[in-house]
Design a protein around this nucleic acid. Structure first.
Lengths: 207, 207
DNA sequence: GTCTATACTGTGATAGAC
DNA sequence: GTCTATCACAGTATAGAC
């Protein structure tokens, strides 16, 4: 009965196993997408038996849903921190740096999200049109104010945000391709990317 | 016996059916990735029966392989056209525009590619390290020459190319998200993107 | 050359022993 | 609370009629 839907009233063992399952599931869902992932793979990855996994979660869908709901919070965090500042260029570049660091430190989360969106976001569309849109509207208005005040060059704030998402997440989602192209120079790819992106956004935003 | 592996010596009917299958398969693979896609879905989408599809192709893997091999050629085409010019900024911006147009006109191809890369590129890694790397090296060298000649601002040519791939393909791969955020302004998203990207890359490259 | 019927495997989920 | 055994079904693929 102690299903993992609620995080309260669990024993230590239960919490740990739930975490192990989610950790393994993240790996599998991020790699194969929802439909391509199997509980067998999650079982193998976590070292638990398949029925044991289904004891803790009400099926494949429930595991995926849990991962997605956690993800969205983490994912929007860097953008939430984009605040008012008398140096908007630094503020935006700091956001770019935070977002790139997330691609470096949480590539699986990035891929989980990418898989979901590419596949048409069937299980997260509501949140995109709600939480994500609201937050983006708010930050786009802030950027627009900076434009109007002449603090940065006039640009479309929405597409600026899109381009930041695209360029930073690229280093998580397309990591295999980046490494294939850079080959022996791939080790320092995140440092190179940080320098390049900082440079590009400064050029784009500074008068 | 007349398997679709070779395109030669086929009747008109055979070519047509092969095309119908590939068309349907593109839709399905682009949406669900290799593992998530099923021949049932391809059958439903194409209106052909499942055994009939397996008559024309040697299994699911063969259909996917055929799509990928076609894709790579189309996909590298815009970059191949990046040639020497006495106005490198225009030349690069023209490449950006071509690449964005491909996201608009061939979103399914973009998603097929994205799915493959996100999942670790198991069926295309060789081509990435071969064809793609060779071409990218060549064009990166060209861009580096422009930098050295002082025709554009000094930048890392590889990460410039990565950023172009990221920003343009984003409008195909993450279209659902872009539309969710832009809502009523989504209709002209490709025109807005074209203007924004042209502006950004000019700022990044022009002295 | 195309279809119906079917074999065989992988997958999600459950029952019941411990 | 966890495991073994197993079911029902979906999925790939093939055999053989037409």
């Amino acid at each position: 009965m102690a299903r993992a839907a609620s995080t309260k009233g669990q024993t230590r063992i239960q919490r740990e196993k739930t975490e192990e399952i989610l950790e393994a599931a993240l790996e599998v869902f991020a790699t194969y997408g929802f439909r391509g992932a199997t509980i067998d793979q999650i079982a193998l990855q976590s070292g638990l038996s398949k029925p044991n996994i289904l004891y803790y979660f009400d099926g494949k869908e429930a595991i995926h849903a849990k991962l997605l709901s956690r993800l969205l919070t983490t994912w929007l965090e860097p953008l939430k921190h984009l605040g008012d500042s008398d140096n908007p260029v630094d503020e935006i570049c700091a956001y770019v740096a935070r977002k790139l660091a997330m691609s470096r430190d949480y590539p699986r989360e990035s891929r989980l999200f990418a898989n979901e969106i590419i596949q048409g976001a069937p299980r997260i569309l509501t949140e995109l049109k709600g939480q994500l849109k609201t937050l983006t509207d708010e930050k786009a208005a802030l950027i627009q104010n900076w434009c109007d005040a002449g603090l940065i060059k006039p640009i479309d704030p929405y597409h600026l945000i899109f381009s930041i998402w695209a360029t930073t997440q690229h280093y998580a989602d397309f990591d295999v391709q980046v490494c294939a192209v850079l080959s022996d120079k791939a080790d320092s790819r995140f440092d190179q990317a940080a320098a390049f992106l900082d440079n590009m956004y400064r050029a784009t935003l500074t008068h």
